[in-house]
Design a protein around this nucleic acid. Structure first.
Lengths: 352, 352
DNA sequence: CTGAAAGCGCTTACAG
DNA sequence: CTGAAAGCGCTTACAG
C-alpha cells in the first residue's frame, strides 16, 4: 500500500511537473515468467523443475530452482488449478469449535474426506463476528458444503448460491439434502429409564430462548408428559457448561423437589454436574443428570455422564455420501429432497 | 465416469466400423461460455448477472440467472481467483482434533484470522493415514502455514516448499520462524508449589517413548531433581486420557509411595484423576495431580485440575503476526530466524 | 533435453 | 445497457 502523498520530494528536480508519484509498486509475487527470465529458460522448463517432472537436465533444474528460491517464487494455486482442475474441496460449517461436539464431528469428516482424497475447509460460524462473509467465502472455495445452518439457513443458502449443500440436523422443513439426527427413539428409551429408576420431578434444561423451545426440548417434554410427569422447562441461552451450571444453581435454589435434569447437550450436563457438586447435591443419589451427544468427555467425569449418544462417524459418512452423490449427478441437486437419518441411542452410565 | 464399454450398440448401423466408443463425456461443469450461449448474451453479461454488478437490465439478469440455474453453473474459483487474486488463505496444521487442545488453538486462530479477512484451512495430521499428502495439499492451497510439525518437521518443510511457515512449539533447533511455548518458568513455580505442599515422591508421566523423553518431561525431572527429589519418569505412548489412566493404574499398582503425578498434558491428567478414583486414591489428599495446557475442561472435573496454562490467544496472535509479517516482506523468510515466546503459567486449582 | 503455441475460466477496462 | 479484446499464471500436448 502506498503511504500518504508526500508534499515535497527531494529526488525531484525543482520546477519539474510532478508526474505519477514515485510509489514503489506493491511487491507483487514473482510469476513463472519472472523465474524463467531469471534462469534464462522458458516457462515450461520452470514448470518441469518446480514439479519434479522428467525431461530436464540436472544442471538446468538446479539453476531454475535457485532462481525460484531467490525470487521467493510460489506457483499460483489459481493458475495451476485452472489447468489441472485442482483438488476436490469440501466445506464444513460448524457452530463453535470450543464445544467439543464440533471438533468431534470435524474429526470424523476429515478422516473420511481424506480417505477419498478430498481436502476440507472448516468454517466456524459462532466465532466470527462476520459469519456471513465466512460462509460465502467457504462456498466460493469449495465444491460442496455440509454443515450446520441453524436458524440462519435461509440467508446462508442464498449466499452459498449454487454450491451443492447437505444440511446437518435441520430444525424444520426439509431443505435440499440433509442428514437428520433424530433423538426421538432414544428420548423414549430415556423416559422409560427415568420411570424405572423412580424419578418423580424431572426438569428439561433446554438451550433456547423463552417461548422458543428447541425441537429436542419439545420431544423431551412430550415424552415425559405422556408418562404422567409435569416437567418444567428451563431455558439456557448458551449451550455451554457455564450456562448449564448457572441455570442448574438457579433451579436448585428455587425448587424444593427436583430429582432429574435432562440437559440439551453433554456440555451443559457437565455444568449440571458441577453445580450439583457445589450445592452438595449427590448425583445420581439425589438427582439424575443426562446429556445429549455422547462425547468421550462424558466418560472422564465423575459420575460418568448418561447421555443420548450420536454416532458422528455415521453422520459424517451419510453426509459425505450425499454430498458426493450430488456432485456426481446421481442425486438431485434440488427439487426432490434427499435425506438420511442417524438416530441417537441411550447410553446409560453413572449419572442416571 | 464412463461405464464399461458396451459390446453392442443398437444405435449404430450394422457393418459400420466402431469409431470412438460412444462414451458420454464426463458431465463436465458448465462454464461461463455455456451460460452465455444458453442465455444468448456475452460472457461479461453473465459475470454481471452472477456477481450482482450494475449495468445490466433486470430482464437480462433474470434470463441469465435462469440459464445458470438450469445448467447448474458455478463460477470456477480458479478462473476467478486468477484475475481477482483471490482471498488470503491461511493454513493451520494441528495434531489431533480429538484432543481439546487443538480446537482450542484453532478457535483462537480462526477468530484472529477472520478479523483480518483471512480464510483458514485446517489440516489434522494425526487422523489422516496420509498426512504427507494433506500437508502438501495444504501448502499448495494457502499463502502461509502455521502449526505443529512435531518430529516430521524436516519432511513437511520440504513438502511445503516455498510456502512461508511459522512453526508452533518446535522441539529442537530453531527453524525459520517459530512461536515457542515455554513451560520452564511455570515448571519451576510448580516444583516450588509441590515442595510447599509437602510432596515427597513425585512421578512424571510423559508422553513419549522410552529413551526419548519430551523436552517438557526433561524440564520437569530437572526441576524436581534440583529440589532434592528422585522423580520417576513414566512413558505414556499416546497423550490421551485413556493412556493417562492406564499408566497411572500401572504405577499405582507398582509403587508403594507416590504422592504426585505431573502429566504431560491436561487430557492425560484427566486420565490420572479417573484412575485415582477407580483405585480409591484421594486427589489431592493422597496424591496430587497436575496437567499442562490450561484447557477449560480442567475446571469442569472434580477435583478441578491444577495445570500449567498457556494463553492460546497469545500463541495465535504471535503466530499470525509473524506469518503476516513474512508475507508482507517485513520479516525474513529464511536465514535469520524470527521467533516469539509465550510462557505457561502455573494455575493452581484443586488437584494439587 | 528444451521451447513456441494453445488454452484452462474468469474479470477488467474499454468501446459502443 | 451490452459486447469484443486482453490478460490473469499456469500446464499440456506438440515440435524440434
Amino acid at each position: 500500500m502506498a503511504g500518504p502523498p508526500r508534499l515535497t520530494d527531494p529526488s525531484r528536480a525543482a520546477g519539474e511537473m510532478p508526474a505519477t508519484p514515485p510509489v514503489p509498486a506493491a511487491p507483487s509475487r514473482a510469476t513463472i515468467i519472472d523465474v524463467a527470465a531469471a534462469a534464462g529458460v522458458s516457462r515450461q522448463t520452470v514448470t518441469r523443475a518446480m514439479n519434479g517432472m522428467s525431461g530436464i537436465s540436472a544442471a538446468t533444474k538446479e539453476r531454475v530452482l535457485a532462481a525460484a528460491e531467490r525470487l521467493a517464487y510460489r506457483p499460483s494455486r489459481f493458475g495451476r488449478g485452472l489447468v489441472t482442475g485442482g483438488d476436490h474441496q469440501l466445506g464444513l460449517v460448524v457452530n463453535d469449535l470450543r464445544n467439543p461436539y464440533s471438533p468431534q464431528l470435524a474429526s470424523a469428516v476429515y478422516r473420511l474426506a481424506a480417505e477419498q482424497g478430498w481436502n476440507v475447509m472448516l468454517a466456524d460460524t459462532t466465532l466470527a463476528g462476520d459469519a456471513d462473509r465466512i460462509v460465502q467465502a467457504l462456498g466460493s472455495q469449495t465444491d460442496v458444503v455440509i454443515g450446520y445452518l441453524g436458524n440462519r439457513r435461509e440467508r446462508w443458502t442464498e449466499l452459498l448460491g449454487s454450491v451443492p449443500m447437505v444440511e446437518l440436523d435441520p430444525s424444520v422443513d426439509p431443505p435440499t439434502a440433509a442428514v437428520w439426527i433424530d433423538p426421538a427413539e432414544s428420548i423414549e428409551a430415556l423416559a422409560d429409564h427415568l420411570v424405572a429408576t423412580g424419578v418423580r420431578h424431572p426438569v428439561v434444561l433446554d438451550n433456547s430462548q423463552p417461548g422458543q423451545p428447541s425441537a429436542r426440548g419439545v420431544l423431551m417434554l412430550d415424552a415425559l408428559h405422556r408418562r404422567g410427569y409435569l416437567p418444567e422447562l428451563v431455558h439456557g441461552p448458551h449451550g455451554t457448561a457455564e450456562c448449564g451450571a448457572e441455570e442448574t444453581a438457579r433451579v436448585l435454589a428455587r425448587r424444593r423437589r427436583l430429582d432429574a435434569i435432562l440437559a440439551f447437550n453433554d456440555v451443559m450436563a457437565l455444568g449440571v454436574l458441577q453445580a450439583c457438586r457445589r450445592a452438595g447435591v449427590d448425583v445420581p443419589g439425589d438427582l439424575r443428570a443426562v446429556g445429549v451427544d455422547g462425547l468421550p468427555l462424558g466418560a472422564l467425569v465423575s459420575p460418568t455422564l448418561t447421555t443420548l449418544a450420536v454416532d458422528l462417524d455415521a453422520v459424517a459418512r451419510e453426509a459425505l455420501d450425499l454430498a458426493l452423490g450430488m456432485l456426481a449427478g446421481e442425486l438431485p441437486r434440488s427439487g426432490a429432497t434427499v435425506q438420511r437419518t442417524v438416530r441417537h441411542r441411550l447410553l446409560v452410565r453413572e449419572s442416571a
